[in-house]
Design a protein around this nucleic acid. Structure first.
Lengths: 312, 312
DNA sequence: GAATGTCATAGATTTTAACTATCAATACAT
DNA sequence: ATGTATTGATAGTTAAAATCTATGACATTC
């Protein structure tokens, strides 16, 4: 059994097609076929049913493939161990980020980061907090950028900054007249919310103290899939929504007039880098942390006048 | 990086000597040297300091070797996965067993087992319960034969049989005159005990209700390392000790006269096969379980008139 | 039934792992 | 000091393997 055989096996499972898998591995189809056969001979079992189209793993094949994926992940760690020990900022890093941060935070630091560390291969994926933590725990991600605290003891959190929540109101809302608002100024029946799964949803419900009035929720007619949609809803249909601070950066002058900050203590969320307790790639993660903090205003790095809202 | 390179690396760490490591791997010394060098070149770090004698791993070498050992363990599991799925009783199995069971239980079933399953490579090691559980959890053992219950949630227990404790007395002991004895018949000041670390020690203290009188223990002059020594102590110096039922089998006629069973409920210990919750090699373990149960008398398989003593 | 898609097989070529023989450095003993 | 043993590295050769190109076998589709 060789690592190459395991790579071919996993590629074949991924593509379910010999020629495509071979191409992905940068070898010819007979090469991949031969090596998968050799592995099958060595183990004494058929790993794929080639009579089906596309080919499918056998029952035992599934189990072997699962262990093969584990082995390949663990073998990749050897290079990470060396890189981490040398402090080299190199290698692949798989980053998960929640959708309410991704479009605002990523553009701020990613360009700098990939220019400064050309040896790092960055893989970013947008996930809800729940999916992200699950992948972290399965070692399918190296680091996450999420809202904390998570209260998951397997995971270490490095707080990055504190992001204020603000209200975004149509002119027709009563609260529009005020300079600073309180949570009770927000009319729950006019509030646009993101759909289930976004952690910000629970926090907004907490801000507006709607937690226990879940039956009330039936009144909301539409649940948006993104912050951008929420803004549009307010602009087209009136009402109010809650936005995170970083999303304000690309508002037009006109849109800014619709923003109202809360009275102190301002509701905020804590944004952190999270990773498994015994993580590798420390130097890459450290570099990423530094690059993010470089583009975040100083006043967001402390939480002086804010009040961190609990997660839903 | 190849599995062969990892094997050579681990062998070199084990033997700290190129020629010996090579011999162990059934290759010549230049072959092993070359492959270790290639691995070092690929990773870009020196893994061994060859200026020392014997050679020693570098700091980073230690870390890489640790991961290499993990990889080799995980790669061996692929064959185990296949064997388990086929129900084949084949492969290597690493068995830990406590010293108070080993000399009495192993001879009963091992001969049969290795004859019946010549494809199984059996590695048995004698360990205290604590060491055994630690090795099981580190995946350095496949299965243990210990006294239960352990109350370790990572570990699954398959009870095998219930073994009675009996008293072994010199003629000068008062209790020698009785047909069946009670725990209070045993004079704590005449009691020979095994040294710390044996689980049976705690159980005997429990039987004799000596748990809280630890200061009392100072009176014991000698702590034996094996059940056999305990018997000798009684025979040469008088006094009393507690033996497990299986150790009675090779007593002489004369020795048997010194054995006294307890009144019901007789104190007993529960002997189990233990393994990690998600274990492989199910079929080998199942075979071993069957072979053991084949040589254990039916009446030991239930615990009718006995009272299982808690572990120390 | 010709065309197409898909995987297996055959034979040539390249790569590499392992071997034998030997060298270089160090430690040790006479 | 000088010869000897030990230990790991190096050079060159051989054997094994992985990969390539070309092609065959089989099934599906139009």
């Amino acid at each position: 059994m060789t690592f190459v055989q395991l790579e071919y096996l996993v590629a074949l499972d991924t593509y379910r097609h010999f020629a495509m898998a071979a191409e992905n591995c940068c070898v010819t189809q007979p090469t991949l076929s031969m090596q998968v056969q050799k592995l099958e001979d060595e183990l004494g079992v058929k790993l794929f049913d080639r009579s089906k189209q596309p080919v499918v793993p056998t029952e035992i094949g599934e189990l072997v493939i699962k262990q093969a994926r584990l082995l390949l992940r663990e073998s990749a760690k050897i290079k990470d161990i060396v890189d981490e020990h040398r402090g080299t900022v190199a290698g692949e890093i798989r980053v998960g980020i929640i959708p309410t941060l991704a479009p605002y935070l990523l553009p701020l630091f990613l360009d700098n980061f990939i220019k400064k560390y050309p040896q790092v291969k960055l893989k970013v994926i947008e996930l809800t907090t729940e999916q992200l933590i699950s992948k972290l725990n399965k070692d399918l991600l190296d680091v996450g950028i999420v809202v904390t605290p998570l209260q998951d003891e397997r995971i270490t959190e490095y707080p990055l900054f504190y992001e204020e929540f603000v209200a975004y109101l149509s002119e027709s809302e009563k609260a529009y007249q005020k300079e600073f608002i309180l949570s009770e100024d927000i009319d729950p029946n006019h509030l646009w919310l993101l759909e289930e799964g976004h952690c910000i949803r629970g926090q907004i419900l907490n801000i507006c103290e709607l937690r226990k009035q879940n039956s009330h929720m039936r009144n909301f007619e539409y649940e948006a899939g993104s912050i951008e949609t929420l803004k549009r809803m307010v602009e087209h249909y009136g009402g109010v929504t809650i936005l995170p601070e970083l999303s304000l950066r690309d508002l037009t002058v006109k849109q800014r007039l619709q923003v109202r900050h809360f009275h102190t203590p301002k509701p905020t969320r804590e944004v952190s880098l999270v990773m498994l307790r015994h993580h590798l790639k420390k130097s890459i993660i450290e570099a990423m942390k530094t690059e993010i903090l470089n583009v975040i205003p100083e006043k967001m790095k402390q939480n002086i006048s804010g009040k961190v809202i609990e997660l839903g």
